[in-house]
Design a protein around this nucleic acid. Sequence first.
DNA 1: CCTCTTTTGAAAATGATTATCATCATACAT
DNA 2: ATGTATGATGATAATCATTTTCAAAAGAGG
Lengths: 145, 145
Amino acid sequence: MKRVQKKQFHDFIAGKGLKSTRQRDIVLDAFLTSDRHMSTEELYLKVRSKNPTIGYATVYRTLKLFAECGIAREIHFGDGQSRYEHITAGEHHDHLVCTRCGAIQEFENEAIERLQNEVADQFGFHVETHKLEMYGICPKCRKQE
Amino acid sequence: MKRVQKKQFHDFIAGKGLKSTRQRDIVLDAFLTSDRHMSTEELYLKVRSKNPTIGYATVYRTLKLFAECGIAREIHFGDGQSRYEHITAGEHHDHLVCTRCGAIQEFENEAIERLQNEVADQFGFHVETHKLEMYGICPKCRKQE
DNA sequence: CCTCTTTTGAAAATGATTATCATCATACAT
DNA sequence: ATGTATGATGATAATCATTTTCAAAAGAGG
């Protein structure tokens, strides 16, 4: 599974004259089988559990390659760490972040996207990407109050 | 001018049993007379130009106080630095960020806010804050292409 | 003024990320 | 297969923004 992304990565690697390595494949597998918003550290630990010799630097380097080849996107939620999420072709989604338990709920809303583009047009901006995050308390945490 | 914010800060300081100091007033003035999205470093340099003895740590500490007392809000634009923007009571705004020249255009759009709240309700989230940023090329940079 | 705290500034510490570099592994020609 | 050139790796040092530490300095209140 996830053949499409694997192919996409390998094509990218080949096209750039880079090399296909054991480590890159391990990180790729770890990434593709992880949930959508893993931090670099979490991914590093996951990779380590399978192969304790892989270094932090390699994980960082490889994640950057994922972002470059279009199978991942770097995101920030205000804690000091960077995370990478999967890119599913054509789809964009935004986030509801629980400030209590850290849970992340994704959503898509075309109406919002449309309004955003209207606003950008108004100011003459050519928008390439955007980011919408709402921070609050998730349903589970609200029940526990 | 900016009396309201000065009072708000001084009341906060007093209420917490903290002390009013020369340094805090200098940083406050620098902040209140600066444009809306100054990075901590930029503010530090501005403060330094008036009073070269003030340290970096003091600027950091004071900006945190501004955020606590409600006259500033910490924001991040993905470059490694944190910025603080002024809070004008009741008003919320989002950002268009030019990825070429770094220009920041603010905007408000009630329709978007309304839709956001609808989405949050749908998922049972109680939203406290949100953040909407669009990244792209501003009109000026587009002309220069 | 005195005294009790809080603040300050300089420097060290921290945490995340990036660069360095000698060694290793891959791709490709032989 | 084997050699070889080049890119990749991992350990470690370096970097960058931010935070902490701590002795000395400065407010607030008596």
